[in-house]
Computed example of a mutant assay.
Amino acid sequence: MKKTLELLEPIGEPVSQDMKEKLTHGSRQFRMSVHVTKVPPMNNLVLYSHWHEELELLFMVKGAAKFHVGQEKMVVQSGEVVFIQPNMLHSAIRLNQEEIIFCAVLVHFNFLSSLENDQIQQQYVFPLFLNNRRYPLLIKRELEEKLRLIPLLEEVRDLYQQEAHGYEMLIKARMFEVLCRLEKCAAEYPPTGLPGQSRGGNSSMLAKKTLAYVQQNYSKRITLSDMAQQVNMSPSYFCRFMKKQFDLSPMDFLNEYRISEAVSLLETTDKKIMEISGMTGFSNVNRFTEMFKKTYGCRPMDYRKRLRQNR
């Protein structure tokens, strides 16, 4: 049986320099995977900013989180589904201290494609992976009650975990059924009607470039001008761009990333607080403590103590 329940915790460098996720989804012979993730109450970060080639259908099992998909922001609650198209930058943060559990089903183009370029591939599969097929980003409870996608996705999860003989064929059949049900609402979302795709392609590329720069340089001194220069923008225009893309100012975004790296060090090492402060780019330990308390509601040392007690 496959293990799919994952605690959201440090996994080294989860993304490459251009923020493409490094995690392999399935194998070359079976290009899909299922991940069930449980987010501890202490973690503010639910899903780190990343993108991948696979189509992703994510449904919330428990709790609620604020998702950022492309240029769209949405609150996702239990019983709702997020439809994330291939190569779309996405992330999520928690809304409250309630426990969060979500399940993500990721499917590569090769899993759904045919050797022959038949009608199914031309009319449905190609448009879907070329971002010419539009479905709602968020399938709310009212729409989910009509489409009934979650029971199908739960069946895919169970088949994936149990690996009974022939499960691969059943998973493929269920995924085609999911797409068939989505067709019922596709007409309401024409190709030009989804923000953050055709009109926001360049913005998405610049956002990925900004993320990559922060990931590679967060431990150094970084100014607003340094960040703006990476995407050839003036500082003032870059501030507006970051607010639109991430709902944060550039420096708040940088500090949040630094804090997330500091949390990884607190959880996985015995390094002193002052040392972690310096390693994550903060000018002094007081500033680090101030920013950490603003994000997690406690001092770094208190966070580490609480973590060890819970373990």
Rank of each mutant, 00 (worst) to 15 (best):
K2S: 13
K2P: 04
T4D: 05
L5S: 15
L5W: 15
L7Y: 12
E9L: 11
P10M: 07
P14V: 12
Q17V: 13
K20C: 07
E21M: 15
E21Q: 15
E21D: 14
L23C: 15
S27A: 08
R28F: 06
M32A: 05
S33Q: 03
V34W: 02
K38W: 11
P40V: 13
P41Q: 09
M42T: 10
L45S: 11
Y48I: 13
Y48K: 13
S49W: 01
S49M: 01
H50C: 00
E54W: 02
L58T: 01
L58C: 05
L58P: 00
F59K: 01
M60F: 05
A64I: 06
A65T: 05
F67G: 00
H68N: 00
E72S: 00
E80R: 01
V81P: 02
V81L: 10
Q85G: 10
P86T: 10
N87R: 11
L89W: 00
H90L: 00
L95I: 12
I101Q: 13
V105Y: 04
V107Q: 00
S113E: 15
S113N: 15
S113Y: 13
S114W: 08
D118C: 14
Q119M: 09
Q123L: 04
V125M: 10
L130I: 06
R134C: 08
L137H: 10
L138A: 01
E142K: 03
E145R: 14
R148I: 09
E154F: 02
V156C: 08
V156M: 02
L159Q: 08
L159E: 14
Q161Y: 09
Q162R: 12
Q162N: 06
Q162L: 04
E163A: 07
Y167E: 06
M169G: 11
M169W: 05
K172E: 09
M175G: 01
R181F: 12
E183P: 04
E183W: 03
C185A: 12
C185M: 08
G193D: 14
L194P: 01
L194C: 10
G201P: 01
A207V: 10
A207T: 05
T210S: 10
A212I: 02
Y213Q: 15
Q215I: 02
Q216T: 08
Y218T: 04
K220H: 08
I222T: 09
I222M: 12
T223G: 02
S225L: 12
D226Q: 04
M227L: 12
P235L: 09
S236Y: 03
S236W: 04
F238W: 12
K244H: 06
F253N: 01
L254A: 03
E256A: 12
E256W: 07
E261R: 11
A262G: 09
L265T: 06
L266S: 01
E267I: 13
T268H: 08
T268V: 09
K271T: 05
K272A: 06
K272Q: 11
G278R: 13
S283R: 15
S283W: 02
V285F: 04
T289M: 11
T289Q: 14
F292G: 07
T295I: 12
T295A: 12
Y296D: 07
G297D: 03
P300K: 03
P300T: 06
K305D: 15
R306F: 10
R308Y: 14
Q309F: 13
Q309L: 09
